[in-house]
Amino acid sequence: MRTISLSETSVREVNRQLHDQTAELAEAQWRITDPEGRHALACGLDQTLEVEIDGHAGYYCAGMNQKARVTINGMAGVGVAENMMSGQVRVKGNASQSAGATAHGGLLVVEGDASARCGISMKGVDIVVGGSVGHLSAFMGQAGRLVVCGDAGEALGDSIYEARLYVRGSVKSLGADCVEKAMRDEHLAELRDLLDAAGIDARAEDFRRYGSARELYNFKVDNADEY
């Protein structure tokens, strides 16, 4: 394992060393110390690296991740794992707004709470939040699964397409075109798999499922007067 301190090495240099692993995977395990809330840590990784960030991270940590497993031993700022393609990002503390925004794949685990707009425009990512999520989570979600072990804020799943949302606690309000749906066996099975993958101890039977009513997909002539 290689350890680099951000009090001695710049973010740009650390990211360059991680990107250099693309050509030759000489060092698979990395520990980054003293992050002190710096932005854009471990962004754009595209190899099977294990990266541990020892402390609190700033904005856009592990953005655009592919294949790598990034663990943040602290909180994450705005846009953690935004546009992730694959791999896994784990936040041991709380996450700020827009966690997993636009992400296409991989697994994002937030062990604490995630703030507003968690999974906004999610396009295939799986997100498991141990605590609660803020307002407008999964806004315009297109694909993927969002699991919330606590509560969800206002307008959950507003204008949602096909993402599937599982919430154990209360939902303050559902957004436009988001409805509660029956929890069938296949949903219980996929939820169990997601909780297992996230390492979170919770009973799938305690969750409710939400998704798109598919009323906003196409123009409806009944709405003509609105224009």
Partner: peptide, 22 residues
């Protein structure tokens, strides 16, 4: 505004750190 500003405070590693709710 950002966590960076808090990084040097004494005992911050063991502080409760969170985003205030809207």
């Amino acid at each position: 505004s950002e966590y960076r500003a808090l990084a040097k405070l004494p005992g911050i590693a063991h502080a409760r750190v969170w985003e205030p709710e809207p």
